Amino acid sequence: MNRFLSQQFSALGNALSRLAAAPLNTMLSLLVIGMALTLPCAGWVVLDNLRGIIGGASGVQQISIFMAIDASKKDVAEIESRLRNAKSGKWRLVAKDDALKRLQASEGMSEIVASLPKNPLPDAFVVEPVDTQPESLERLAALFSAWPKVAHVQLDSAWVKRFDAFLRIGRLAITLLAGLLAGALVAVTFNTIRLQILAQAAVIEVAKLIGATDAFIRRPFLYFGALQGALGGLLAALLVALGGQLLGAPVAELVVLYGGTYDLLGLTARSIAGLTGIGALLGWLGAYLSVSIHLRAFA
Rank of each mutant, 00 (worst) to 15 (best):
F66M: 07
F224R: 12
L180R: 03
L143E: 09
M27I: 15
A77T: 05
L137I: 02
R102D: 12
D214V: 10
A146I: 06
R218C: 11
L116H: 02
V160A: 02
I197M: 14
T192M: 12
L198R: 02
A142K: 15
K208A: 11
A182P: 04
D97P: 01
R92V: 07
Q62Y: 05
A15I: 06
T189M: 12
A201D: 05
I193T: 13
V256L: 14
G183E: 04
Q228N: 03
A99T: 10
A151C: 04
G43S: 08
A22R: 05
L185F: 14
D48V: 01
G283L: 10
A241I: 12
A20N: 04
A249V: 11
L242Q: 03
S292Q: 12
N49L: 03
M27F: 15
G52H: 10
A241R: 13
I293G: 01
L167Q: 01
D214S: 08
R82K: 15
R194W: 08
E128Q: 08
A280S: 09
S81T: 10
L155P: 04
L83W: 06
L242F: 15
S136E: 07
F125H: 12
V94C: 00
A299L: 00
R3V: 06
N85R: 12
A297C: 05
V32L: 05
L267P: 03
R84V: 14
S145D: 09
G13T: 10
V206K: 05
D75E: 13
A105G: 09
A252P: 03
E205N: 13
L28D: 07
L167F: 01
A22N: 12
A230R: 07
L155G: 06
N25T: 06
A230K: 08
A215V: 02
N191S: 09
A297W: 07
F224V: 09
